[in-house]
Design a binder for these strands. Structure first.
Lengths: 192, 192
DNA sequence: CCGATATTGACAGTCGACTCTCAAAGTTGG
DNA sequence: CCAACTTTGAGAGTCGACTGTCAATATCGG
């Protein structure tokens, strides 16, 4: 029971913190204000999050990689790695419950919108790129640090990032669709 | 003469600051240490750089958007927008004096490596994407917010970003080459 | 209900970024 | 050299992040 209570408090603190950061900015928000908003003592905030920056670190982000790996493996063998990646990403988003998808969008947009949040999670982006490289390497039988594998991973992760960044600035339709569309520009380049 | 003396002191402070940041990290370096290393008083540091973060901002930095625009216009008409972009980027880097290129690499790597710097310059990434979209729109005669134009801009800017990010983590060869290679995965996708 | 254990709040205190002020020292034009 | 001007050093002071301690409180096993 301790665990559940602890996690509940932790989530409340982080939720309020992110809300305040989005409102008035990271630097302009004091830990004391976060504590007050979450209805806890300042010392309690530090007990859950060693530093103020840690309030920005989103855990539970990487679980996306597991279903992605499965969806990727389920792709038809005749597809190229790029087509398979595109298909797998679309499948993962399609299979996601609406509530979870909405929560993820909100988090991802916050991550691109709040500068400090982005910098705190830069490592996650790099990890995502590595994960994609691993997938492609496994499927193609090449080494994960093969130039072609790494190059493909760069392009795909970069396209996903840029699609999200652009979508967050001008939300129209579905982010998953934006990602798929961006990838389509690599798989089937339109004449321009 | 005031001007020259002021600039000299400013450069000395920033040089020592960057050296210390590279050595022990940004957060682990105090302004007092920077002042001592530069042989000035702490208050003098703040007189030249309003905040500690400002010690990271290199002046004399001009975005390569202008030369890129020129190089893009100079590309052969028979190339696709994508090929022209790739060629223009390569041309800009090739035409850049060695010293300037080295300085640019150093700065770009710092920007991706030091989170504090990245968060300060996130807006530049979005602007770069818009600029690329403008170039493509102008050349293709389509609107800058055309879905295909925006999609292409997303993929290209994303690829550049990812290439730089990856290169900064594992520097081999030339960043310009990494960018070109990433773009080649879109123009001439290798079989994978 | 009771004791063991985990969590919290309140509080004091350190440290560094940053501001403000004023006197000292260097610089320039005359 | 003098006088106006600019920069600098020094110091005091504010504010917020962060640490450590201790008593109060909540939960659990028995």
């Amino acid at each position: 029971m301790w665990e559940r209570k602890r996690a509940k408090a932790r989530n409340a603190i982080q939720r309020e913190a992110l809300r305040l950061f989005a409102d008035r900015g990271f630097a302009a928000t004091t830990v004391e204000q976060v504590a007050e908003a979450a209805d806890v003592a300042p010392s309690t905030v530090f007990r859950h999050f060693p530093t103020k920056q840690d309030l920005l670190v989103l855990d539970g982000y990487h679980p996306l990689l597991v279903p992605l790996r499965e969806a990727f493996a389920a792709q038809p063998a005749e597809r190229t790695a790029l087509q398979a990646l595109r298909g797998a990403l679309a499948a993962v988003f399609a299979a996601m419950p609406d509530a979870e998808r909405a929560a993820r969008y909100e988090r991802d947009v916050a991550m691109v919108t709040i500068p400090e949040l982005w910098s705190a999670n830069l490592g996650l982006v790099a990890k995502g790129m590595d994960a994609i490289a691993d997938l492609v390497a496994e499927r193609s039988g090449r080494a994960p640090d093969d130039a072609r594998v790494r190059g493909l991973a760069r392009v795909v992760s970069g396209a996903c990032f840029a699609a999200l960044l652009d979508w967050s600035r001008n939300p129209e339709g579905d982010p998953a669709q934006a990602i798929d569309e961006a990838l389509s520009h690599i798989t089937d380049p339109p004449p321009l």
